[in-house]
């Protein structure tokens, strides 16, 4: 009997390894905070493990098309998952919107944007630089430009615009004070449901097209139960609460 019990232990551990799969996920940089929490909760609730890589969606798109071993892609927009689907790199019909991004006009200076007066600050134009993410590549940048257009200040502010390559760099320009103001993701500055430091103005959703962030299962993840489990988990209450806590909205 003594010789059997170690064997038994090995067999048991092997079975549990076989059940707990690992899924490799490419995650848009703006979703870093929530994804870390979701991955921890996912491991607790399902015993599967989600291994996340964070970066710009544009780079992930290029990498996935060139054989990167990701199984699930959480993009910062809806366009890239759609394009990957057209090109046959995804499991058909697996796209869904996991979060709707919220845009905020933010300054590191607590006095810079008086409560609720973001639009007035933009119209007065008394600042040196306004940072936005590159509108050509970053959905938050495109939403920022749409907001400036809706407020009819685009031409006046254009000479003051500086662009970050992505939303993380845009935040860096503003947080170091090199740009007094900037349009960043609410998820970057939110703390306990409020704007944590500096001052900010939540841009009303009707000023720009919704920032739909889509998730998709990639061809490599087709037969991985953990990939499917993660997609289902993102629909679940616990994940949705985490996503909401970071200032994202959820589709109806």
């Amino acid at each position: 009997m003594r010789c059997i019990s170690p064997l038994l232990a090995i067999t048991v551990s092997l079975t549990s390894v076989a059940q707990a799969e690992e899924v490799s996920v490419a995650v848009a940089a703006n979703f870093t905070g929530p994804m870390q929490e979701i991955a921890a909760a996912f491991a607790e609730d399902t015993e599967h493990e989600a291994k996340a890589a964070f970066g710009s969606s544009g780079k992930f798109y290029a990498q996935i098309k060139n054989g990167a071993p990701f199984e699930v892609f959480l993009s910062a927009d809806a366009a890239k998952p759609a394009r990957l689907a057209e090109d046959g790199f995804t499991v058909p019909g697996s796209n869904f919107t996991y979060a709707l991004g919220s845009l905020v006009l933010w300054s590191a200076d607590a006095e810079r944007i008086p409560a609720g007066e973001g639009a007035a600050v933009l119209q007065a134009g008394e600042f040196r630089k306004l940072a936005i993410a590159n509108p050509k590549t970053a959905p938050y940048g495109a939403a920022a430009v749409a907001t400036l257009q809706a407020l009819d200040v685009e031409d006046a502010i254009k000479p003051k615009l500086v662009q970050g390559e992505n939303i993380a760099q845009t935040y860096q320009f503003v947080s170091t004070g090199n740009a007094e103001l900037g349009f960043v993701a609410l998820s970057q500055v939110i703390q306990d449901g409020e704007i944590g430091s500096g001052s900010g103005w939540r841009v009303p959703a009707e000023l720009h097209e919704p920032i739909r962030q889509d998730a998709v299962v990639l061809t490599q993840g087709k037969d991985n139960p953990a990939a499917q489990a993660l997609m289902e988990y993102l629909h679940g209450e616990r994940a949705r609460n985490i996503i909401r806590a970071y200032g994202y909205n959820l589709p109806e």
Partner: peptide, 11 residues
């Protein structure tokens, strides 16, 4: 170099 990066990011 930045322009190339932009082109790649914009696909």
């Amino acid at each position: 170099s930045v322009q190339i990066y932009d082109h790649v990011e914009a696909m």
